[in-house]
Design a protein around this nucleic acid. Structure first.
Length: 500
RNA sequence: GGGUCGGUAGCUCAGCCGGUAGAGCAGCGGACUUUUAAUCCGUUGGUCCCGAGUUCGAAUCUCGGCCGACCCA
């Protein structure tokens, strides 16, 4: 394998050629990529500190500044020019005129291009229209941009290019920058929430000898020295519960999972999850805990729990709805009776009528789940916990003491999307072993997503896992919710694309 | 996997009942000392996604392919 195939074709054009010749001239005059410019001020800080001052106040103070950033706009007017530069905090306008820099320096500036990285020193002032600006005494080219920016007003509209060349999207699109800043704040708020609840943050393997903790197809890779197949993890669950066996009673991990499945507006092959486990708790505690987490994160990141998603409003500060799977089906289809929904033949008939996907070998529980996914899941706009998941689709969850066919498990749906999955953990090693064996039988019968048996995990459980509750939350989907993003690709910096 | 829409200058887009490609921005040259998507004058720039077919002639019509967006599975 060479890396050459990953390098896009060189696409030279007149604009790039022009800029290359400018760079060549700069090289001939000295250091073309200087790194000795001392930037002392950020655009946003200057606006915050001096934006309210009047023209006369600023003239009296003569505030010296040193700013740097990418030139986004340029307006040349003969003997004076304006330029707008952008740093990570925002934008500020430069004013360059023959009177101050001299005619030669101004002439050099006139040949700087949009997209170039500039450093400028000068004094703050206010223009006629009241815009805080820098009256430039010296402006330097710090990095020549050889490629032109997208059209300055419309920016980049082609989704493909926005994803493939995210750097351009970030340069030109304020909303994109904002989305990823919010993403960072969300993760930070989650970390702080768990730290405050005395959780230990851990890192467990990404390379697994046996993929486990979820029902999904793994990516396969090869370890040369050990000459063995390895799998990129589909979930960290079994490792985190080993840590609870070891006595870390509250643990969490925020990291990537990999699932070898299709791409969609809701699925990227690698995605970020937080999984957390707490000993001596159950799934009901987790639901309350999750409500607190979501409302707190929203409040800290957005300042409110009332959010708007794709034009509809919802409140993460209110208690979330809680429905059993059967209730969730009946909510939108009240014509179905409890008796019908616990009748295998009836369920299969309905699923066939709906042309829905289901596994014919499933029992009542699995068929109910298929019907729920077909009829109700996408309609659960307001936050809703669905409880009473059947044992057969929950091989790692503790069965209910009252009803052995169902587990102490929930999934959380918001805006019609699964966003979290939690349960009281199965800590009976013999039951767990029997469940693994059932999964292996299903895998041998052709279910590619069925789980492998992890003998060491059984051994760990045999040492005793305290009663424990655990949950996973999809960070990307949470970010979508809080940034009003329609596609998971809008919240992942470099989403997966077909190779160019 | 199926359906719909799209791929034309560096970018944003027009042109599509067939007649050999246009605008705005960006670039280049010129005018302009408070502009802010600056303005005004001039000007350079094209594998019309790829391949085949129909035709005297294809960006335009037909078929196949590639890539993408959205919807469905």
């Amino acid at each position: 394998m060479t890396t050459e195939q990953n390098i896009p074709q060189v696409d030279e054009n007149q604009i790039i050629a022009e800029r290359r010749s400018k760079l060549k001239a700069i090289r001939e005059q000295g250091v073309a990529f200087p790194n000795d410019f001392e930037r002392k001020n950020m655009a946003a800080d200057l606006h915050a500190a001096f934006g309210e001052k009047s023209h006369d106040e600023l003239e009296a103070e003569q505030v010296p500044v040193s700013v740097a950033g990418r030139m986004m706009l340029k307006r040349v007017m003969g003997k004076a020019s304006f330029a707008t530069i952008q740093d990570v905090s925002g934008r500020i306008q430069l004013f360059i005129s023959n009177d101050i820099t001299g005619e030669d320096a101004h002439a050099v500036f006139k040949h700087f291009d949009l997209g170039d990285i500039l450093g400028a020193t000068g004094v703050l002032f206010k223009t006629k229209t009241g815009e805080l600006s820098v009256r430039v005494t010296e402006v330097r080219l710090l990095t020549k941009a050889l490629r032109p920016l997208p059209e300055k007003f419309h920016g980049l509209t082609d989704q493909e290019q926005k994803y493939r060349q995210r750097y351009i999207d970030l340069i030109t699109n304020e909303q994109t920058r904002k989305t990823f800043m919010i993403r960072s704040k969300i993760v930070q708020a989650i970390r702080e929430f768990f730290a405050r609840h005395d959780y230990l943050e851990v890192e467990t393997p990404m390379l697994h000898p046996i993929p486990g903790g979820a029902s999904a197809k793994p990516f396969v890779t090869h370890h040369n020295a050990l000459d063995m197949e390895m799998y990129l993890r589909i979930a960290p669950e079994l490792y985190l519960k080993r840590l609870v066996v070891g006595g870390f009673e509250k643990v969490f991990e925020i990291n990537r999972n990999f699932r070898n499945e299709g791409l969609s507006t809701r699925h990227n092959p690698e995605f970020t999850m937080i999984e957390f486990y707490e000993a001596y708790r159950d799934y009901k505690y987790l639901m309350d805990f999750t409500e607190r987490l979501f409302s707190e994160v929203a409040r800290r990141v957005l300042g409110t729990t009332v959010i708007s998603y794709q034009g509809k409003e919802l409140d993460l500060g209110k208690p979330f709805h809680r429905l059993t799977m059967v209730q969730a089906i009946q909510k939108y289809h009240p014509q179905f009776t409890d008796e019908q929904l616990s009748n295998r033949d009836f369920l299969i008939n309905e699923l066939q009528d709906l042309k829905a996907k289901y596994k014919p070998e499933d029992g009542v529980g699995g068929l109910q789940l298929s019907l729920f996914e077909e009829l109700s899941e996408h309609l659960l706009f307001e936050p809703t916990f669905i409880v009473d998941y059947p044992v057969e689709v929950s091989p790692l969850a503790r069965a209910s003491d009252k009803n052995p066919g169902i587990t102490e498990r929930f999934e959380l749906f918001i805006v019609g999307r699964e966003i979290a999955n939690g349960f009281s953990e199965l800590n009976d090693s013999e039951d767990q072993e029997a469940r693994f064996d059932a999964q292996v039988a299903a895998k041998e019968a052709g279910d590619e997503e069925a789980m492998f048996k992890d003998a060491d995990y059984i051994r760990a459980l045999e040492h005793g896992l305290p009663p424990t509750a655990g949950e996973g939350i999809g960070i990307d989907r949470l970010v979508m919710l809080l940034t009003d993003a329609a596609s998971i690709r809008d919240v992942i910096l470099f989403p997966h694309m077909r190779p160019e």
